[in-house]
Nucleic acid binder design. Sequence first.
DNA 1: ATGGTGGCCCGGCCA
Length: 254
Amino acid sequence: MLIATWNVNSLKARLPRVQQWIEENKPEVLCIQETKMKDAVFPSLVFHEMGYESAHFGQGQWNGVAILSKVGLDNVINNFAVGEPDGEARIISAECGGITVVCVYVPNGRELEHDHYHYKLRWMKQLKQHVAKIAKPAGDVIVTGDFNIAPEDIDVWDPEALIGSTHVSAPEREVLSDLCAWGLTDIYRDQHPEPKLFSWWDYRDGGFHKNHGMRIDLLLVSESVAKRTKMTVVDRNARKGEKPSDHAPVVMEL
DNA sequence: ATGGTGGCCCGGCCA
């Protein structure tokens, strides 16, 4: 069973590539971020014809998250299940084949101390409350998506160059670590201890070709899922060629 | 390079 996460940076712009990737890889579950579309234009029929149930929580121009599944898609929750609902479409959850799947697009933060940065930190704390509300650490749980946080210095191309930037600050790493303390493991890092393995590369200045990237797309899994995980991989090929997203899919096999 | 590229949708904003 393959479970994947992919920030597609506009599903409208990326649909042909997303379809091709699904046909080639046939994941049982695909979590998508940054669809940048309204629910009314989400291509659920396209995915249905490919054998997937789908659920989308969108808002239009920005954000938007979706879950595609071939193994069931039940108890779909748009937005947070606890506290004030987020004004932006950044989180969708569902039960897929007995696994609680939470698909997130964590706010970028923009700059340290920017309002958006504090929104990001609050968002991560509310995510932990959300996960605690809908799942138990002893259950099968996967919290995945674009976290816009690189967990450690080995997850960025040049830690020195990024001092003072978002994605690497201590408060961001602390809220991520605190979420994991609930009972989640960064399973790709568990399986691949070596540095400079990335999931995102800036479009600008040939970032991909220079391997100027970050590992910010994460698969956080509960212990029972971690024990059953056979393989994890970043599909760097999906970052190549015509009109790629700036993120590559991250895939795990159960 | 206080730039660069690519998405939104057509003037800047966001990533």
